[in-house]
């Protein structure tokens, strides 16, 4: 799959928010780009009319949510507490299944027409970093923490080589190359703990990286570090963030999803 890196382009406002009369349902709209014509295929993560009502309840947490997230772009999900943001991330990561609607990857020709049937988004292609991921570190050193999810059985030489290259790339991407791999994860600073949590997902080489409140609880220095890091990461893969901190992400925003009651 050949792809071309695209610079950020100004937002287009396509449609106003539509508030549902029911106080417990959510509606969404998205500001999305008309992508410029390019000389190769490109793909997009698509969410279409997704509704979610947990089994055994009468309450819909999401109601007909739709948006598109072009590959290697940066998306931000914003909304009040209780509007369903974290639920949406869990559906995208495959932790839960929508009650109705679909989540898929669509590949397009250069003229904007679909070039292949839509492909369901599978959990193996998505990395998710939860709020305060450092609370779930399990290993005694950085290397064991990053490789915790690796296959336990010995693979062939080719597999081991790929794993090692993936590890090195993930470490470099998040700026952990200056840290000793023997260091205890809990002794890292706040910002470096978030970098480690990102590296854990990046070694799996996801196509879509999902982050739930990546700046929460960080001091001003760690925030600046993580914002810069995410700005760099979106050149490599697609990033989708839930955050209340709109200002810090403004300069890099391509897709904005507002969930409202």
């Amino acid at each position: 799959m050949t792809t071309v890196l695209r610079p950020p382009i100004g937002l287009r406002f396509l449609q106003p928010p539509q508030l549902s009369p029911s106080p417990t349902s959510c509606v969404s709209f998205s500001l999305s780009l008309k992508l410029p014509r390019i000389n190769s295929n490109y793909s997009s993560f698509e969410v279409r009319d997704v509704t979610y009502q947990p089994p055994g309840t009468q309450l819909r947490l999401l109601n007909s949510v739709s948006f598109s997230l072009p590959e290697k772009s940066f998306g931000l999900i914003f909304g009040q507490s209780g509007s369903g943001k974290t639920t949406l991330l869990q559906l995208l990561a495959g932790i839960s299944k929508p009650t109705s609607g679909s989540i898929y990857i669509q590949e397009y020709e250069s003229d904007g027409n679909p070039s292949q049937p839509p492909e369901p988004l599978v959990p193996e292609r998505v990395g998710i970093v939860f709020q305060f991921p450092e609370r779930y570190f399990v290993a005694d050193n950085v290397l064991d923490e990053v490789t915790f999810g690796w296959p336990r059985q010995k693979g062939n030489h080719h597999l081991r080589e790929n794993l090692a290259l993936g590890l090195q790339r993930a470490i470099n991407w998040v700026g952990l190359s200056g840290i000793s791999l023997n260091k205890n994860p809990h002794s890292l600073s706040g910002g470096y703990k978030r970098r480690l949590a990102l590296a854990i997902q990046l070694v799996q080489t996801p196509d879509l990286l999902i982050l739930d409140e990546p700046l929460a609880g960080l001091d001003w220095k760690a925030r600046a570090d993580v914002v810069k890091l995410l700005k760099h990461l979106k050149k490599e893969l697609t990033v989708l963030v839930v955050s209340h901190d709109l200002r810090l992400f403004q300069f890099t925003l391509l897709v904005f999803v507002y969930l409202a009651f």
């Binding site: 009040q80 507490s81 709020q131 409140e213 929460a216 209340h244």
Partner: peptide, 11 residues
């Protein structure tokens, strides 16, 4: 202790 970490702006 850091009550506002996870709250939206109105909260």
């Amino acid at each position: 202790d850091e009550l506002t970490t996870f709250l939206d702006e109105a909260d």
